[in-house]
Simulated scan of single mutants.
Amino acid sequence: MTLALLALSACQPQDPEGKPAAPPADAPAASATATPATASGGMDIGQPITARGTEPFWAVEITNGVKFRLTRPDQPDLLAEAPGAAISPDGATWVAKGPNGEQLTISLKMAACSDGMSDLKYPMSAQVVLRNEVLKGCAAKTAELPREGG
């Protein structure tokens, strides 16, 4: 029996770290492996989310929990996609790829956040990593973004 289990596990695809490999992109989603739309902290990643920061100014729009648009002044927008998010008790992290293989890592945490330039309060903190650049800011559901004077 043990030998049979070893033989079966040896046939399972694995990534370079020895973990089970992700299923192919065209594989049907299994409910046991599907990414939940809500982190246990109450973050609903199925809704559009906008993250933004200052110094330097930037914004990331998250759509359908898998599509991303990074905008920054004087630079072209970067569109990227991720297969889903890694959900933790207090947030979510995506590793997205752009059309030229650029890796964009987006992390959102359920934590009160202020953008540092205004008195606006956001329900989430955000961090975006692109190449060697780390952008820090705040995030909210797009429909619930805080606005000055309102």
Rank of each mutant, 00 (worst) to 15 (best):
residue 11 C to M: 13
residue 13 P to E: 10
residue 13 P to K: 07
residue 13 P to V: 12
residue 14 Q to S: 10
residue 14 Q to I: 03
residue 14 Q to T: 12
residue 15 D to G: 09
residue 16 P to C: 13
residue 17 E to Q: 14
residue 24 P to H: 10
residue 24 P to L: 11
residue 25 A to G: 02
residue 25 A to W: 12
residue 25 A to N: 10
residue 25 A to L: 15
residue 26 D to S: 10
residue 27 A to F: 13
residue 29 A to Y: 06
residue 30 A to M: 04
residue 30 A to L: 08
residue 30 A to E: 10
residue 31 S to M: 03
residue 32 A to H: 13
residue 33 T to S: 08
residue 33 T to I: 04
residue 33 T to V: 09
residue 33 T to F: 09
residue 33 T to Y: 14
residue 34 A to N: 09
residue 34 A to I: 09
residue 34 A to C: 08
residue 35 T to R: 11
residue 36 P to G: 14
residue 36 P to I: 08
residue 37 A to H: 05
residue 37 A to S: 11
residue 37 A to F: 12
residue 40 S to V: 00
residue 40 S to G: 06
residue 41 G to K: 00
residue 41 G to C: 15
residue 44 D to K: 04
residue 45 I to N: 07
residue 45 I to G: 04
residue 46 G to Y: 13
residue 46 G to W: 05
residue 47 Q to H: 11
residue 48 P to C: 09
residue 48 P to H: 06
residue 50 T to C: 03
residue 50 T to W: 05
residue 50 T to F: 02
residue 50 T to H: 02
residue 51 A to R: 00
residue 51 A to T: 02
residue 52 R to P: 07
residue 52 R to I: 03
residue 54 T to A: 04
residue 54 T to S: 09
residue 57 F to H: 11
residue 58 W to L: 04
residue 59 A to C: 01
residue 60 V to G: 07
residue 61 E to W: 00
residue 62 I to L: 14
residue 62 I to G: 01
residue 63 T to N: 15
residue 64 N to G: 13
residue 65 G to K: 14
residue 66 V to E: 15
